[in-house]
């Protein structure tokens, strides 16, 4: 794969990559760093990708593995103050969103990946199944399971 093709393809998926990385850290700079790192790793190994139609799948996998590893190491959570400074929401919205972020971050890794891909990557069930190499039915099951766990974590049926 030539440099030109590689970076053209990266450009097409950079929005998704950023959103996915952001979902791990809720930090712009961290997300950018993760994307940079993933692109660099992909660039070094670009010639090992035999079927270019799987480029996006391949890059997203690299990115998610990096994010997961880095997240485990850093265990960094956004503070209320940081979130308010960055997004200037009302106190109520900030509180709710931080609780939700916290709940998502505590999901088991396989469920968190599903939530990330579905809501941040905006991938369809079929695409998620391809990305994670699992049956489509399993994707649906895991989405439901993740949402159930989040509801429990956030306290009740009213959400």
């Amino acid at each position: 794969m030539t440099d030109e093709v590689f970076f053209n393809r990266v450009e097409k998926i950079r929005q998704k990559m950023y959103a996915i990385a952001y979902s791990y850290f809720y930090s712009e700079s961290m997300a950018i760093d993760m994307v940079d790192d993933a692109v660099y790793r992909g660039y070094l190994k670009k010639n090992s990708l035999k079927q270019e139609q799987f480029f996006e799948t391949w890059m997203v996998r690299i990115l998610m593995n990096l994010c997961a590893t880095h997240y485990k190491k850093s265990k960094r959570h956004r503070s209320f103050e940081e979130y308010v400074v960055d997004h200037e929401p009302s106190a109520e919205i900030a509180t709710n969103r931080l609780e939700l972020m916290d709940a998502i971050s505590h999901l088991p890794d396989d469920l968190k990946r599903i939530i990330t891909l579905k809501y941040y990557g905006e991938y369809s069930t079929k695409e998620i199944a391809e990305l994670l190499k699992i049956p489509m039915g399993t994707v649906g099951t895991r989405v439901r399971k993740a949402l159930d766990l989040l509801r429990m974590e956030l306290g009740g049926d009213d959400i």
Binding site: Q15, Y18, A19, S23, Y120, L147, R151
Partner: peptide, 16 residues
């Protein structure tokens, strides 16, 4: 809940 997650995810859609 899904709506809430979608709202949260919107933060990530503004590309720096």
């Amino acid at each position: 809940l899904e709506h809430e997650i979608q709202n949260l995810a919107k933060e990530a859609f503004e590309l720096p």
